Amino acid sequence: MTPRLDLTADPVELTAALVDVPSVSGSEAELADAVEGALRSQTPGLEVVRSGNAVLARTGLGLASRVVLAGHLDTVPVNDNLPLRRSGSGDGEVLHGCGTVDMKGGDAVMLHLAATLDRPRHDLTFVFYDCEEVSADRNGLNRVESELPEWMDGQLAVVCEPSDAAVEAGCQGTLRVEVRTRGVRAHSARAWMGDNAIHAAEPVLRRLAEYTPRRPEVDGLRFHEGLQAVGISGGVAGNVVPDECVVTVNHRFAPDTSLDEAERRVRELFDGFEVTVVDAARAAHPGLAEETTSELVRASGTSPVAKLGWTDVARFAARGMPAVNFGPGSPTLAHTQQENVAAADIRHCAEVLRRALGADERG
């Protein structure tokens, strides 16, 4: 039986209800059914559509601007941390369990606003999607962007991932490459007859160790780039000089760098070696100069910070709009058995977004 969600309830109670519906990646149908049913029955002013296990809703008030709020419904596998457990009370209450921080607290805030924000200053789109916690090719936003691209467009995107209730603006891009060295096989007892490809990788590792990361300032935010060896493989047997070695390198680059520029820098650093790009994603510009972004920052009452990592904000930024992370809870607790979120954080984020987006809520 599909659980009934009360979208007008305290967003803390709504978080608890969402958490108690398990939704490990690939198994979101029950929760998506509940979200869809609640949006259709409790938000008469919203257009609601379903795409696989993604649920989308939007206003059509004809306002001059639109803000997209997005959150994923799936979680990592349960780790003996369901059903929901509570500790403390009042302002000190904490919700514990799989999905509390990543990111059903953020989903609850979005659902609550969808049902209770009567007079928004912007038209609003709410995107609840599936399979974010697995490989990028399964991410539900791929399907939404392919089938319903207009549902991802607006003047600002807010991804309600945990951000300690601060605005995390933009995000770093990521580039993963394989740097390959080649040699000649030989019996290890007659090593002089071969050429050891693993030994030949020493300059690759030395260049990485000597690399000085850029720390550029973008929109007043300090980003910190990185270039790290994240894997190394080589060798075929315990008595054979290896003829190939592969060093896998991950480069995290700031929003002032294009994907092409990031690749050029990496290839220049490893000039003379065989370099193959195996994965890449663009960075997202913070967009803090945009008025809609500034409204959210002012409403938060905190200073924005740079997002040192890659998130789905980059998917929205690639469509030409500023995008930020803003949600309850600490990202350091995501994917841990101890995952938890403070009730006060959930309520605070709901009120900040209400102030930022509501026509009568500016203070």
Results as ranks from 00 to 15, higher is better:
Ile198Cys: 09
Pro286Tyr: 05
Gly62Ala: 05
Val67Glu: 01
Pro203Asp: 08
Ala209Ser: 15
Val177His: 03
Pro3Cys: 05
Arg50Asn: 01
Val247Asp: 03
Arg355Phe: 08
Thr332Cys: 02
His112Trp: 14
Cys98Ala: 12
Asn139Trp: 00
Arg222Cys: 07
Glu295Thr: 07
His112Ile: 10
Asp91Arg: 14
Ile346Trp: 09
Val246Ile: 15
Leu7Glu: 04
Ala356Thr: 06
Ala283Asn: 09
Ser330Arg: 13
Val352Cys: 08
Thr336Cys: 03
Ser25Trp: 12
Glu13Lys: 13
Val19Ala: 04
Glu202Gln: 12
Asp20Gly: 02
Ser87Thr: 15
Phe270Leu: 09
Asn196Phe: 10
Leu357Val: 03
Gly105Trp: 13
Glu147Met: 05
Ala64Arg: 15
Glu36Phe: 05
Gly99Phe: 00
Arg143Asn: 04
Asn325Phe: 02
Val158Met: 10
Leu208Lys: 07
His335Pro: 08
Gln42Arg: 07
Gly106Ile: 08
Val177Asn: 03
Gly235Tyr: 12
Gly329Arg: 07
Met1Ile: 07
Thr336Asp: 05
His187Ala: 13
Glu261Phe: 06
Ala200Ile: 01
Glu132Ser: 06
Thr212Leu: 14
Ala359Met: 04
Tyr129His: 15
Thr257Cys: 15
Cys245Gly: 03
Leu308Ala: 04
Leu269Gln: 12
Ser303Cys: 02
Leu31Asn: 01
Asp153Gln: 14
Val177Trp: 06
Asp118Gly: 02
Thr43Met: 02
His112Phe: 13
Arg362Gly: 00
Phe326Thr: 03
Gly45Ile: 01
Pro328Lys: 02
Glu244His: 11
Gly52Thr: 02
Cys349Asn: 09
Glu93Gln: 14
Val49Arg: 14
Ser188Gly: 10
Pro286Thr: 06
Thr302Tyr: 12
Ala343Thr: 08
His96Val: 09
Gly220Arg: 07
Ala359Ile: 04
Asp153Pro: 00
Gly99Arg: 00
Gly220Leu: 09
Asn142Pro: 01
Val55Cys: 07
Glu361Pro: 00
Leu221His: 08
Ala280Thr: 13
Leu111Cys: 12
Cys160Pro: 04
Arg86His: 13
Gln155Tyr: 02
Ala57Cys: 03
Ser146Glu: 15
Ala334Glu: 11
Leu296Lys: 04
Ala283Lys: 10
Arg206Met: 08
Asp6Glu: 15
Val341Leu: 06
Val167Thr: 02
Gly106Leu: 10
Gly45Thr: 01
Leu148Arg: 15
Arg185Trp: 06
Arg185Val: 12
Ala201Asp: 07
Glu132Phe: 13
